[in-house]
């Protein structure tokens, strides 16, 4: 297995190198997506399936879609990477070696918070330790991460509209029919991934990524879907953050403390937060990609 891991590491480093040094931006984006998939594999090898799922869905999938959508708006050009001064090579090399040494010496004395997590897992309302940490023990981290996503979308909106360039319209009904057929399945997967998060790898971010993909496919097939002028969609963007913090305040009312749950209500409240968060994440991610795609306004108006 060590040889496979070394191969994986080699491939990741090689692809990262290629991504940075690609002459054409298109090539860089494609390599970046491939890199994301390999990093997801690396997470899986590190026995972090939650991170692997998120990396594959968001790091490779949706980030790739965003990059491709942005690429279409840029004028065709080749970037010639600046050769790096040898001094920088030396500095970065030194930094890398130091880091390797540090990681090596950390590995010899493993410490972590896992014992605490396992001790308190029965009171957390969920049985999957990752979900317990993200949604209960360190809930404010996750709530603010959701806020980061919301503010990233706010930032994108503030930057203005994409230029309107035309698309090749899709001929025939193949795409629309297939999307219609696949949609219920995607919804099912999203709900399943969300539900599964309480006891096994999965959760709001992964489920939201599936939802975002479903919305994007609806749009690609020119079916009625996501219209940012609709109130429900706008409310959906902030639903996750709102619900998360309102439940957090509920903890204060009940005397548990800010961002706390009563142990007997934890399961239900966590599921409520995760559902709202998954919807929000899906809507936000899909909106981000759609807003970067040229021609969105012309097609919906």
């Amino acid at each position: 297995m060590i040889w496979l891991d070394l191969m994986l590491v080699g491939l990741i480093l090689g692809l990262a190198w290629r991504c940075v040094h690609a002459i054409e931006l298109m090539e860089a984006v494609v390599v970046f997506v491939a890199l994301g998939m390999l990093v997801a594999l690396a997470w899986a090898r590190l026995q972090a399936p939650d991170a692997a799922l998120a990396e594959a869905a968001i790091g490779a999938g949706l980030a790739g879609a965003l990059l491709l959508a942005t690429l279409r708006q840029l004028p065709a050009q080749a970037v010639r990477p600046q050769p790096l001064h040898w001094l920088w090579w030396g500095l970065w090399g030194l930094f890398g070696v130091t880091l390797l040494w540090a990681i090596g010496s950390i590995l010899s004395t493993p410490v972590s918070l896992m014992p605490w997590v396992n001790t308190h897992l029965p009171e957390a309302g969920v049985s999957h330790p990752v979900t317990a940490v993200l949604l209960n023990f360190r809930a404010l981290d996750t709530a603010l991460e959701l806020a980061v996503l919301l503010w990233a979308w706010m930032a994108q909106r503030a930057l203005g509209e994409s230029p309107d360039t035309s698309f090749h319209p899709v001929q025939g009904r193949v795409l629309a029919t297939a999307v219609k057929a696949l949609l219920p399945l995607m919804g099912l997967v999203a709900v399943y991934v969300l539900w599964r998060g309480s006891s096994a790898p999965g959760g709001a971010f992964q489920s939201g990524a599936v939802l975002a993909a479903a919305w994007l496919m609806l749009w690609l097939a020119d079916l009625p879907g996501l219209d940012p002028r609709r109130w429900s969609v706008r409310l959906g963007w902030l639903g996750g953050v709102m619900v998360f913090f309102l439940v957090g305040l509920l903890g204060l009312v009940q005397g548990i403390g800010f961002m706390g749950y009563r142990p007997d209500q934890a399961t239900g409240l966590i599921l409520l937060i995760e559902s709202a968060a998954a919807l929000s994440i899906g809507l936000l991610l899909a909106s981000m990609v759609l807003a970067s795609l040229p021609g969105i306004k012309g097609r919906r108006a």
Binding site: V170, Q171, L175, L185
Partner: peptide, 15 residues
């Protein structure tokens, strides 16, 4: 599922 998506994607790329 991979079959369906492969057929669909090939169709779109072809178009």
């Amino acid at each position: 599922l991979a079959l369906v998506s492969a057929a669909l994607v090939s169709h779109l790329i072809g178009q």
